[in-house]
C-alpha cells in the first residue's frame, strides 16, 4: 500500500492489520516514533495524520487515510519547528525516549490553540507518559513554543 509520510510517498508491503508504528519502524525504517506500550497508553509513538495526533502503535496501517507526519518531518530547511526549538531552549529532555511523542502532541495542541493555558496543556498531554518526570519543563516549553510561534507568524 502507499503512504505519504513526512511529505514523501512510500510503498509499504505489510499486512494491513500491522500497526502503523511497526510499518514505519521495521519496514520503512522511520525510527522517530518510539515503541513504549503497544496499547496507546504512553504516547511515545504519537504521529500526526492530517494534523491530528494519533497513537501509531494501535492504528492498523491499512486504516491510515491521510498524510502522516512524524517527528522527523516537522522541522524545515529553515530550522527546527518552534516546538523543537522551545524544547531545546528549555532543555526539556532527560532520557529523551518519550519526547518525540510529547513534541508531536504539543505540535497538534498548538495548531488548535495558539496560546494554551496550563489547563489546555493538562487536557492535551495526559496521554504522554514521561518516566524521567520532565513535566515542569514540558509545560514551560509549550508556553515558550507558543510565543515563538506567534512571533514567527
Amino acid at each position: 500500500m502507499n503512504l505519504t509520510v513526512d511529505g514523501k510517498s512510500i510503498e509499504i508491503d505489510a499486512d494491513p492489520e500491522m500497526p502503523l508504528l511497526w510499518a514505519l519502524r521495521d519496514i520503512a525504517g522511520i525510527l522517530g516514533p518510539k515503541f513504549g506500550c503497544g496499547i496507546a497508553a504512553c504516547g511515545a509513538c504519537t504521529v500526526l495524520i492530517d494534523g491530528s495526533p494519533v497513537r501509531s502503535c494501535v492504528l492498523p496501517v491499512g486504516q491510515v487515510e491521510g498524510a502522516v507526519t512524524t517527528i522527523e518531518g516537522i522541522s524545515s530547511p529553515a530550522g527546527l519547528h518552534p516546538v523543537q526549538q522551545a524544547w531545546l531552549d528549555e532543555q526539556v529532555s532527560q532520557c529523551g525516549y518519550c519526547q518525540a511523542g510529547q513534541i508531536m502532541t504539543a505540535v497538534a495542541l498548538l495548531e488548535e490553540i495558539a496560546d494554551p493555558t496550563d489547563e489546555d496543556i493538562d487536557n492535551a498531554m495526559g496521554g504522554n507518559l514521561c518516566r524521567c518526570g520532565t513535566y515542569p519543563k514540558i509545560r514551560a516549553a509549550i508556553h515558550r513554543a507558543a510565543s515563538l510561534k506567534l512571533a514567527r507568524s
Binding site: K34, T70, I71, W87, L88, Q91, S93, G96
Partner: peptide
C-alpha cells in the same frame, strides 16, 4: 546538554533504533 538536539529531533540513538 550535549544530547539535547538528538532528543528533540527523534534521532535514532536508542537500543530499539539499532538497524
Amino acid at each position: 546538554r550535549v544530547d539535547m538536539l538528538d532528543k528533540v529531533t527523534g534521532a535514532p540513538i536508542f537500543g530499539i533504533d539499532v538497524r
